[in-house]
């Protein structure tokens, strides 16, 4: 199919329009982080750039310990979710029963419940298990929160694998574990990787549970940002500096893995 000039111009305008719209808040945040607090409350584009906000933020909080918490809970939550989701998606994709569809839809429906609806019971459970303000509780919560989406994604990737290939493996003497390890995982590695990446990003940016279940020792970067929106009034420059530092690692990470992410997320759509 040949594109007409109109189609190309249209795609160009829409594509860039959406990209700029999505990128604008981030660009604005980065810009603000280099302003002084006085400049920050005005939308001026001309100002003398300063690193004072960054200096202030770093002097007031231990950025590295927050960042370390973020890394640990994101990776931990993702790995835990994958450990449960891989067998779950395998059984639903290759040994479906009449209830498989229902189970999948039910899993997704749990994402429709606002998290705050279960805040109190979860909080009490965490408190009574002495897990408040631990990385463990966040790892568990993130794994559970992402499980539906991780299972769904893996399920769709698994569905793409020809059944014959796994059956050939079974005829060759593979039992379930070798079948998954030698055949299914290598064949769906791009899919598993992009699922993991997405889960990492979701965990990294999660704020609700981290703010409610942690205070200091296990607090990740989202809590770090929040600590700069103080009740005495907002300090936009410092808040922006903190936010920039919080999202920078995942942005850099996303940038390097974007090829993988796009490939995984459009897998199946472009056959």
């Amino acid at each position: 199919m040949r594109e007409t000039v109109f189609q190309r111009v249209f795609a160009f305008v829409v594509g860039w329009g959406v990209a700029i719209l999505l990128f604008f808040p981030i660009a604005w945040m980065v810009l603000t982080s280099f302003k002084s607090e006085v400049d920050a409350i005005t939308p001026r584009l001309t100002f003398t750039p300063t690193l004072s906000s960054y200096a202030e933020v770093l002097s007031r909080a231990d950025y590295l310990s927050f960042a370390l918490n973020s890394v640990v809970v994101s990776v931990g939550g993702t790995v835990l979710a994958l450990l449960f989701a891989i067998p779950a998606a395998y059984s639903m994709a290759f040994h479906p029963t009449q209830r498989t569809r229902g189970t999948l839809l039910w899993m997704l429906s749990t994402k429709m419940l606002p998290p705050v609806g279960v805040l109190v019971p979860i909080y009490i459970l965490a408190r009574d298990s002495a897990l408040l303000d631990t990385r463990t509780v966040l790892v568990i919560m993130y794994a559970l929160a992402n499980l539906p989406i991780v299972v769904w994604m893996l399920f769709t990737f698994y569905k793409e694998v020809p059944k014959d290939i796994l059956e050939a493996g079974r005829m060759d003497g593979a039992r379930t574990v070798s079948e998954v390890w030698y055949l299914l995982l290598p064949l769906t590695l791009p899919g598993v990787a992009s699922t993991g990446l997405l889960s990492l990003i979701l965990c990294w940016n999660e704020a609700f549970w981290s703010l409610n279940l942690t205070t200091s020792s296990a607090a990740p970067l989202t809590a770090f940002i929040a600590s700069f929106s103080s009740p005495q009034g907002l300090f936009f420059a410092k808040l922006s500096a903190a936010s920039t530092m919080a999202v920078a690692p995942i942005l850099v990470f996303g940038w390097f893995s974007q090829r993988q992410l796009v490939r995984g997320l459009t897998f199946g759509a472009v056959k």
């Binding site: 020809p162 014959d164 059956e167 050939a168 060759d172 055949l183």
Partner: peptide
């Protein structure tokens, strides 16, 4: 051992 119509190679 089985040979599949689709070959089903890895």
């Amino acid at each position: 051992a089985m040979v599949f119509q689709s070959y089903a190679l890895y």
